[in-house]
């Protein structure tokens, strides 16, 4: 952050503050707030109890009501700070009737006091409702959704890398009739989005019996023209002499692919792998169409279904949103340089 501050206070040159300096300052300052703020708010909110979530105005941090064990009572009693004519003190609530609460001093459990609830506030400390995170896994299907998402992401990425790199190899390192046609075909479909072919694609996936199957989600996404295009561009830069040297060295064409070309394509494969993971993890529209049974939902579809219920249980929903966000944030933190370089270089997304 000190580096950020150093940048913020850096000026265009000269001693006077140029209007561009002020503008830069404002733009970047509000950017930190607007870009990070919402995600941070999501994370903070996800630890709040349902009661706290419905508070208005909301508190910044999650709090938990304090409870205390009092002699003579089986359950833990919630603590309140009471201030009335008798002064300020901390009491535990035994039961509440209308606007009046029966309360005891934990130090003196025998004497029950009657307090107007307007005169008391709950005693709270910063605390996290971990149940928001645990319950959906234990009581709902979120564990299943997560497994499905991991399966789809992993398998689709592996198949993408394998099939795309094989095709890119054939299209970059061999001369054959129709090669130009295939390359043009792939480039031409680079930008055909899924939304244009939803209906017929659905009928084809149904035709091969993959509706409500994770494979129905995986297969239509793996033959990405983008991947073939990216890998081919990279493979074109590998000198042909290396392949010829390998041929002189008794290597079969398959060995040339996996012992020579594939390792040398590793940087491009890494970029494609990262993007494939992010793409497949985030896919929404297609899984939404193909998957209509709960047990095959991916996280994104599950979240949407959960958010669409009449009585949204925000405390669970927010926690699950955080869970869904985590892998992508991890990828972002560790591989930011790769991703930004990949985008700047290829316009991939």
């Amino acid at each position: 952050m000190s580096r950020a501050m150093a940048f913020l206070t850096r000026r265009k040159g000269g001693d006077a503050w140029d209007w561009t300096d002020v503008f830069t300052f404002i733009w970047l300052g509000s950017a930190v707030f607007i870009m990070f703020g919402p995600a941070l708010w999501l994370v903070l909110s996800s630890f709040k109890s349902p009661a706290q979530l419905s508070e208005f105005p909301p508190t910044l941090l999650p709090y938990e009501a304090q409870t205390v064990a009092v002699e003579g009572y089986d359950r833990l009693l919630p603590l309140f700070s009471v201030s009335d004519d008798d002064g300020t003190r901390t009491l535990a609530e035994v039961r509440r009737v209308g606007t009046v609460a029966q309360m005891v001093d934990p130090a003196n459990p025998a004497e029950v006091q009657r307090i107007n609830i307007a005169n008391r506030t709950p005693v709270r400390e910063v605390g996290f409702s971990w149940g928001n995170y645990l319950d959906p896994f234990l009581r709902f299907d979120f564990l299943n959704y997560t497994k499905n998402s991991i399966f789809v992401t992993g398998v689709a990425t592996l198949i993408t890398l394998l099939t795309n790199s094989m095709a890119a190899f054939a299209l970059s390192k061999y001369e054959f009739r129709g090669r130009g046609f295939v390359v043009v075909l792939i480039i031409a479909t680079l930008m055909i989005p899924l939304s244009v072919i939803l209906v017929p694609l659905y009928s084809i996936v149904a035709g091969v019996g993959l509706i409500n199957s994770l494979w129905g989600v995986i297969l239509p996404t793996v033959a990405t023209p983008t991947g073939v295009f990216l890998l081919r561009q990279y493979m074109l830069t590998i000198p042909d002499e290396l392949l010829e040297a390998a041929r002189m060295d008794h290597a079969s064409e398959w060995q040339i692919y996996w012992r020579i070309v594939l390792p040398l394509t590793a940087p491009a494969l890494a970029v494609l792998a990262i993007f494939s993971v992010v793409w497949r993890w985030n896919d929404f529209l297609w899984p939404l169409i193909v998957l209509s049974r709960q047990e095959v939902y991916t996280l994104q579809v599950g979240l949407n279904a959960y958010a669409g219920e009449l009585n949204v249980q925000w405390h669970y929903l927010l926690a699950m949103t955080v869970i869904t966000m985590i892998p992508v944030v991890l990828v972002f933190i560790f591989l930011q340089r790769f991703i930004t370089a990949g985008i700047a270089g290829t316009g991939l997304k």
Partner: peptide, 9 residues
């Protein structure tokens, strides 16, 4: 940072 987040999120 928000670019990689899923649309649902």
């Amino acid at each position: 940072f928000p670019v990689l987040l899923s649309p649902v999120v």
